[in-house]
Design a protein around this nucleic acid. Structure first.
Lengths: 203, 203
DNA sequence: TAGATTGTTAATCGATTAACAATC
DNA sequence: TAGATTGTTAATCGATTAACAATC
């Protein structure tokens, strides 16, 4: 999805103006068929000879992805990971704005940024007032469930969960897990069983 | 995969000794059929009346996942993210050991841990000497490719990539991407298009 | 026109699920 | 034995790929 946009922008910056399902697929690591299907799904027509117009694609993707809307997020838990995210430049570059960080001990958080760090109790009010819809959870595991509930009650509907707690939310909440420990465990497994070729099928 | 082990340990800590494909599936969020298939793939037999023996499953999973082997990893790039990972407790708890961090300016890295932070030039020697097979890449995007190449040349075969650069490696290297920006972008998209119900199919 | 690429349909593939005989 | 659960096969579902007519 967003990968399309990145590739398209890169292509544009290289001076291309049109692209074939073929090229796009290569760049994205998917088959041309999939590209064509995706694009027709977005109701973007190509030219049966000259491929697709890059500028047109970019505009349509910007539209679909809501790049023009306000894209704001808060962070709950400003420990090691949370603080690193507060200072993470990538976000600005992508047009994502971290409105605030929250912690039970905001005074102890030392970060080199102008983003305010407030007490967790102020979170619901802040979220309501600014109509924030997305939140990052980087609190200790044992606080995850409580903080999650509070965030949901405050109106947040999209969650990036850095804890290893499996959060169960309302049906209209979307939870994306980033479980670094699990990721590494899996890597160990894959690297060790690469050649042995045991069951490569299991999830 | 590793999730099985977590659930099984939890069940054990609750005092259970046997479990049904049914229960396990619920806990894992998959169907009983899948559990049965996975387990038979691992060549673990159950009892057609009493389900599976939890202890037996744990042992078998420990074996397959290589929990008993040395599980060591290095971190290249000790900036915001890298430093946070160096101090990340989850790893120890899971039996993963970070042997060292590497940076172009190791002196400037301030971390509250006994893990050594060395100059990136020492990385190949260190990796070779200790036979490290896994590495985390948390350098700036523009250094990603070079560092990746060096790591591969040094013998690392499993990578956790925190940059937004698409790394292309040898066929026997395994690269796992953790792209936080992309994750968030996707969340924005999902939250906004949840109800509108535009194409929920695209990758 | 001839050549090339789209848009779309049909075929393939793989993974999930249902179902049920085997059996503890 | 009767009841319940496994192990496995067949059916279903969805996603990917192949293929090709439409057409620029």
């Amino acid at each position: 999805m967003i990968k399309y946009l990145r590739v398209l922008k890169k292509l544009k910056s290289f001076g291309f103006s049109r692209v074939y399902s073929n090229n796009l697929g290569d760049a994205l690591g998917v088959s041309p068929s999939i590209v064509r299907k995706d694009l027709s799904l977005l109701q973007i027509g190509g030219n049966r000879r000259g491929g697709y117009d890059i500028q047109e694609l970019i505009e349509r993707f910007n539209d679909v992805l809501g790049k023009d809307r306000e894209r704001e997020v808060i962070i709950a838990g400003c420990g090691r990971i949370g603080a690193a995210l507060l200072e993470y430049r990538e976000f600005q570059r992508e047009g994502i704005r971290i409105r605030a960080g929250f912690d039970i001990a905001p005074d102890t958080v030392e970060i080199d940024t102008s983003i305010p760090v407030l007490h967790i109790n102020e979170m619901p009010g802040f979220v309501g007032k600014h109509e924030i819809k997305l939140g990052i959870i980087s609190v200790p595991d044992n606080a995850a469930a409580i903080v999650f509930d509070k965030m949901q009650a405050a109106g947040i509907r999209g969650f990036l969960n850095f804890t290893s707690v499996e959060l169960k939310g309302r049906p209209d909440s979307i939870i994306q897990n980033v479980n670094i420990g699990l990721e590494i465990e899996n890597l160990f497994y894959l690297v060790h069983n690469r050649d042995e070729d045991l069951e490569g099928q299991m999830s």
